[in-house]
Design a protein around this nucleic acid. Structure first.
Lengths: 204, 204
DNA sequence: GTCTATATGGCGATAGAC
DNA sequence: GTCTATCGCCATATAGAC
């Protein structure tokens, strides 16, 4: 009943649009390039999504929705603080290594169109209070030193995300444009970032 | 002799172009908008800079040149590691607070046109080896724990830059879109980032 | 649903008067 | 050096045949 062609094409469009938008951003992306990558023509893009703007918003919401909830996993686990942080950092770096354009894409677009954000955050069911409360509990229990939990969260995110967002720059400055070496460096950071954070917050 | 009009206009163009390019990026910027902000018309832009591309490159090199050398200041000081790190973090966060669009602008453009980078880095006289050597010395002296110096440098940069690049997102998630509160939070990070790093690397 | 052809507008760039 | 007017292209979007 539901026609196969439609579903197939819509999927192809979404995949192609995500690739192009994430690499080029809203301003740099071209409908023609998306059509080419999807193996169809421009007119069909407008048949499925009325405008470039609507196609972009569909992609942005989808991409954003896949990235954000991961943060919450930290709060809903019964493991030790060491294990929770380690698992989160490893998982997050892993996702970003496979999608190195993602961080910069999101950063750029939230500057370009900040209105999109507020509504999405509210609708996402994201509960940052839970993570804050979790870290606060660890501090009250004397497991980690007292500090603003928001600082701790943002520090972990910074250490995980920024080195991948700045890859083109860092690989030139510190690795003489050797992409492979830099990828290995990032891979090692799954361990070294965890150590760096734990050294900072654990009470010895 | 040297005509005043020219110098005045060129300055106005450069200021306007920097504002627009840094906010909108190469793809999103419009020559008309730059002309408006400079109080002139489009034709004059092309009279001073032959093309949008050339104007953009002038801006990018200028902006990049103002940001990068700061990193070197860490290496060429006789102060203690605590003071060097503290001064660098405070100075860097200060610059970025006044230019909150800068980090994302640079990140986006180095992804869009990575070729521009390599040449600029070489010509800039930037010597990352000096900073690496400085940290290595501190480790050999037993002042800070042993680790890859590049990790330490990139960690400090991450903690300083990312929270400002991600401001539109973080202020919504953790501060309920209250920009003023988030600015105060960043201001406090001049201290808390230093503490976070020192707790991690100092040998007690 | 999918295509070709075309309308429509906007943008970078240039011509030419002053 | 600065302006107005305009060219030519390219990108989004639509019309209409199949």
């Amino acid at each position: 009943m539901t026609n196969i062609k439609k579903d197939n094409t819509e999927e192809k469009i979404l995949t192609a649009a995500q690739n192009v938008f994430v690499r080029k951003g809203m301003d740099g992306a071209r409908m023609q390039e998306i059509a080419d990558e999807a193996g169809i023509n421009k007119a069909l893009l407008h048949y499925y999504f009325r405008s470039k703007q609507q196609l972009f918003e569909a992609i942005f919401k989808s991409v954003f929705g896949k990235i954000m909830p991961n943060i919450m996993l930290m709060a809903t686990s019964e493991k030790s603080i060491e294990e929770k942080l380690g698992a989160f950092i490893e998982n997050y770096i892993d996702i970003l290594m496979k999608n190195p354009f993602l961080p910069t894409f999101i950063l750029k677009e939230i500057h370009r169109a900040p209105e999109l954000l507020a509504g999405m955050i509210k609708g996402s069911g994201l509960q940052p209070e839970l993570i804050i409360a979790m870290f606060k509990q660890e501090m009250d229990n004397g497991n980690i030193r007292k500090m603003d939990p928001r600082d701790l969260i943002i520090n972990v995110l910074s250490l995980s995300i920024f080195p991948i967002a700045a890859k083109p720059l860092m690989s030139v400055v510190f690795f003489d444009t050797d992409q492979k070496n830099y990828n290995e460096f990032i891979e090692r950071r799954k361990v070294t970032v965890k150590e760096f954070v734990l050294h900072s917050i654990l009470i010895k």
